[in-house]
Design a protein around this nucleic acid. Structure first.
Lengths: 109, 109
DNA sequence: CGGTATCCTAGTCGATACTG
DNA sequence: CAGTATCGACTAGGATACCG
């Protein structure tokens, strides 16, 4: 699925381009939870339900590679790593805001 | 992945609720392409890149079950089936608009 | 603490053939 | 035309163990 959508020419469909960057539940959740401020790896793992360390690592690396989040390593013992949104990451918040608004309006618990 | 996110209690996170409804590339693309007006099954298959009949069928059924699209069958020969957005489906368009805006602004072809 | 490295499985998707 | 049925390949993601 990943491969297929990347083969398209996104030039003709901005939506597909966006989907290739963040069309992924985990990524959106990471961005959603990071928005409030810097978060450590462990905190992310706790706050995102049921994500495995490995998957979280993968998604964080992809987001970092795409320039959506920053990864800051503090040379301490025990080690501390914090993630926060880049400017590009912040520019994605309106999308998440719309999703949040829609969810609030239409979800029936 | 599907199962996992469904196990969460979405009551506490509207974003997760939204993701459970439309956190899926195919679904978003279907909604995106249907927005312009009624579309037949074949037209959808042509306009959505590389989607198989089976996958498209599945996604259309799920969207229908969630009340996001209508399916209208015309008793003709050859048969004609058209899909269009319900009111609920239309309410999702702001999300897609935001994604489209973001893609337009930040994609580098 | 914040990761890798492996392994493995469930589920998704595509190809093909067939149907009303 | 608009599907279904079947099968097989692929892969995202979870479990586990280990590392700096």
């Amino acid at each position: 699925m990943e491969r297929k959508l990347k083969d398209y020419n996104p030039e003709y469909c901005p939506v597909i381009y966006s989907l290739n960057k963040i069309g992924d539940r985990w990524k959106l959740l990471v961005i959603h939870y990071i928005r409030k401020g810097n978060l450590r790896f462990g905190a992310l793992q706790n706050v995102i339900p049921n994500v495995s360390r490995q998957t979280l690592t993968n998604k964080l690396r992809e987001l970092e590679a795409d320039g959506i989040i920053n990864r800051t390593v503090y040379a301490e013992v025990p080690p501390r790593v914090e993630y926060n949104l880049t400017e590009l990451g912040v520019s994605l918040l309106p999308i998440i805001n719309e999703m949040s608004k829609w969810g609030l309006k239409y979800m029936r618990p």
